[in-house]
Write a protein that binds this DNA or RNA. Structure first.
Length: 779
DNA sequence: TTTATAGCGTTTTTT
DNA sequence: ACGCTATAAA
């Protein structure tokens, strides 16, 4: 059956080439707003419709769960529209709601349900639930299919335990965070504990390797995996077991990866192995019925701190491609026509990103008119900045009836910046949503309940067990718990094995024996029930039986009421999940909560959106406020002495600018509160890189008086005529009144708008403006 | 075993 | 400035 002739007619030639590509590798270099999601969804539909590919043979990897959900919905709609025309000759929208639902559910059952669409993490978790019991790592560690997925705080807790208690190390010298970071990095490069150990000659490295080993022991003992292992373990399994690799290779004929610039080494390994069954891509012969289709934009690579490596994208042509020059190649397509933003916004973005050296040559070509100029505002401090932003929002909303609160987004570098804006929005009664920050699933009460559930599913999960064994209070204290844990450790069994055993508990626990046995009995009951009973029922049962809800009710405080509502919300979420995914099991729900993010719940609603630039990736808004453009904040001070990191900050700025459809506001403050004290702030380097002719400076005077309870504006800073911006260069030595002797490591900006990064002995790096701060040259 | 308090580190970004 | 953790007292 031929495809609907109309099906592809709305695509531009490049999009069409991407969508119609059938077999072999293809890299789609897709600029911001160039319709890549469209290309991805149409391609999947086209594979099924035109090429008769079975949905279960398609694997599509998205960057977030939200993107996965959206993709499924779009595909579903595409098919439903088609079926409506084919069957009844009527457009989907003209059918009755009942007919529409019926059609959609038919599409779901025959097509979308069978597609493998998700993030690397969720897809790998799904495969591991089937195959992990066939895996054994280099040191014989094994996992069972009911494994827990540990979140960042679980992991940090384990790390700390190993460093402080097991190894007796100083946790200031070996900060759990930084050790965790090193291990995570190793994992994302595909290094196991042995490989890592071999690569570390110095003391610190050997210690970390030791921690890595003990950490893996702890994970295995808890029958748990961290985020990184979801991918790494699967890759290892596929490497060591040809039969399993062959099975999944034959399962997935068509691989699609979105946001390919943000994949890391292990993820690349996985895709490569699945695509070519472990054969080197250039030697692989089986392309005649399969494909690898990756979509990305190196200019939007912003996750290197998570070990993402955009050279993977840049090397695609070398690994999989035909090696022909850009004009003749059949393995790369560029999507450069931008349908999102005004010409003004695009020119600004293009000009900024030109300052980067590491990129694939690509520009965003406008398809819309010039639009409004970009407004740049200099505020006195962060309160003033918030005042300006909210003022603009109010004015625009008042003056344009078609604009709603949902059309606005405030984007910032760090989560901590949200507060000033929240305060101001509350003051004016404007509805808003903060994405990120404290996640729903990170709240204490939610983590408590999830720990109960994890324990029910996986009793070996001692981390969860220890979290909730005395929550609510059961009179089981630290000493009792310590005694039980060390018994477990000596016997080499999970803590649970001690707790469920009557005689052990009676001999070890004394006074609290009875409540421990009661607790154990309750968990045992639900553990036995969890395979057959629906997740929601188990949640309800546990909430009642454990006394968790009762104890919250007994508190009667406002905070406890809040917690109660959140717990109720979790119960609702489990029901909703069961309906949406057609799977009421506890296992499935728990897996989804472990990998959920705040973004997933960001519904189309009419509220102003507040989020970090990282969270904003992939989104678009008619009106965007890009705030806090200050040296040290954005670009962040950690990136100032690292060229590659600075380029990543610039890409982040590029991402921010390209989120805007119609109007963009940029702002910075001259002074900012940091840890309670006020710090002067310099304009960001990036401001000096934006085209002047597109920017319209907005004077602070345009802003009406601030409410009386706000801080007064600070007096202007008087410039020092004795130091000239042009005089400074990298390597210059100078004397500062407060910091002493220093050396210039960077010069930001040009001409009169210059500021310096200066390294001072003892004090470290500082960012200074020679026009503001007196700096005396030393020869 | 539970509760109060003092001190400390925190802020880059997240699946 | 604030929230969390370690430590001491009830």
């Amino acid at each position: 059956m031929p495809a609907d002739p109309d099906f592809l007619s709305h695509l531009n030639p490049s999009q069409r080439r991407s969508v119609e590509h059938f077999c072999g590798p293809l890299l789609v270099v897709a600029g911001a707003g160039s319709g890549k999601t469209r290309a991805l969804t149409f391609r999947i539909a086209n594979l099924v419709l035109t090429h008769r590919v079975a949905p279960e043979n398609i694997l599509a990897v998205t960057f977030t769960n939200k993107a996965a959900k959206e993709m499924k919905e779009r595909i579903e709609r595409l098919f439903a529209e088609r079926l409506a025309l084919e069957d009844g000759g009527k457009a989907l929208d003209l059918l009755s709601p009942y007919e529409q639902t019926k059609l959609r559910s038919r599409v779901y059952k025959t097509i979308t349900k069978h597609l493998w669409i998700g993030t690397f993490h969720s897809l790998c978790a799904r495969i591991l639930r089937l195959d992990i019991e066939k895996f054994k790592d280099g040191q014989g560690r094994q996992w069972q299919r009911n494994f827990s997925i540990f979140d960042e705080s679980d992991v940090q807790g384990l790390m700390k335990d190993i460093i402080v208690k097991q190894l007796n190390l100083d946790d200031r010298k070996f900060q759990p965070r930084s050790v965790r970071f090193a291990i995570s990095n190793a994992k994302n490069q595909g290094l196991g504990p042995e490989d890592y150990e071999a690569s570390q000659p110095n003391y610190r490295g050997r210690v970390i390797a030791n921690v890595y080993n003990l950490y893996q022991d702890a994970l295995a003992a808890n029958n748990a995996l961290d985020f990184d292992d979801l991918i790494r373990i699967l890759v290892d399994l596929l490497r060591q077991n040809d039969a399993i690799l062959d099975y999944w290779h034959r399962q997935f004929h068509h691989l699609l990866v979105d946001e390919y610039q943000d994949t890391n080494r292990t993820q690349y390994e996985l895709i490569q192995m699945l695509a070519t069954n472990g054969v080197h891509p250039q030697q692989f012969q089986g392309w005649n019925y399969r494909s690898v289709f990756v979509v990305g934009d190196a200019d939007q690579s912003i996750y290197s701190f998570r070990a993402a490596d955009f050279t993977i994208l840049m090397d695609f042509q070398k690994d999989f491609g035909d090696g022909l020059p850009d004009d003749d190649t059949r393995t790369m397509v560029k999507l450069e026509d931008n349908y999102r933003s005004t010409e003004t916004i695009l020119q600004t973005a293009n000009e900024l990103i030109e300052n980067n050296t590491e990129r694939i040559d690509k520009i965003l070509k406008p398809t819309r008119g010039a639009g409004e100029p970009i407004t740049c505002f200099r505020a006195d401090d962060e309160l003033h900045e918030a005042e300006f932003v909210v003022e603009q929002i109010r004015n625009l909303e008042m003056q344009h009836p078609e604009i709603t609160w949902g059309d606005f987004a405030i984007l910032y570098r760090t989560n901590a910046q949200s507060r000033a804006f929240e305060d101001m929005l509350v003051r004016w009664n404007i509805p808003y949503t903060v994405v990120g920050g404290l996640k729903f699933y990170d709240r204490r009460e939610i983590k408590d309940v999830l720990s109960y559930l994890r324990l029910v599913m996986n009793p070996a999960d001692s981390v969860s067990l220890q979290r909730i064994i005395n929550v609510p209070r059961r009179g089981i204290g630290k000493t009792t718990l310590d005694r039980l844990s060390s018994a477990a450790q000596e016997l080499g069994v999970p803590l649970w094995e001690i707790i469920r055993d009557d005689t052990s508990v009676k001999t070890l626990a004394g006074r609290s024996a009875k409540s421990i046995l009661n607790f154990a009995q309750m968990i045992q009951h639900w553990h036995t029930a969890h395979e057959t009973q629906a997740g929601a029922e188990i949640i309800q049962g546990i909430l009642e039986q454990s006394g968790y809800v009762d104890s919250l009710k007994a508190q009667g405080t406002e905070e406890a009421d809040d917690r109660l509502r959140n717990v109720q919300e979790l119960y609702n979420a489990s029901i909703q999940f069961a309906e949406e995914n057609g799977d009421p099991s506890l296992t499935a729900f728990l897996a989804s909560t472990a990998l959920a993010s705040d973004l997933d719940n960001l519904e189309e609603s009419s509220t102003v959106s507040l989020m970090t630039l990282h969270s904003a990736k992939g989104l678009e808004f008619p009106i965007v406020f890009l705030v806090g453009l200050e040296q040290g904040l954005f670009p962040n001070f950690r990136s100032l002495d690292d060229a590659a990191a600075l380029e990543e900050e610039r890409r982040l700025c590029y991402v921010g600018i390209t989120r805007a459809q119609d109007q963009l506001f940029i702002s910075h403050a001259r002074e900012r509160r940091l840890y309670g004290s006020r710090e002067p702030a310099m304009p960001s380097l990036f401001l000096s890189e934006l085209p002047k002719e597109q920017l319209e400076a907005r004077s602070p005077l345009a802003i009406p008086k601030r409410p009386p309870n706000m801080a007064a504006p600070s007096p202007p800073v008087s410039p020092h005529p004795n130091t000239h911006a042009q005089d400074w260069g990298v390597g210059d030595r100078l004397l500062h009144k407060g910091f002493g002797l220093g050396e210039v490591t960077h010069v930001f900006g040009a001409g009169n708008k210059i500021c310096l990064a200066v390294k001072f002995a003892g004090v470290g790096q500082k960012i200074l403006d020679p026009k503001v701060t007196r700096l005396d040259r030393v020869d």
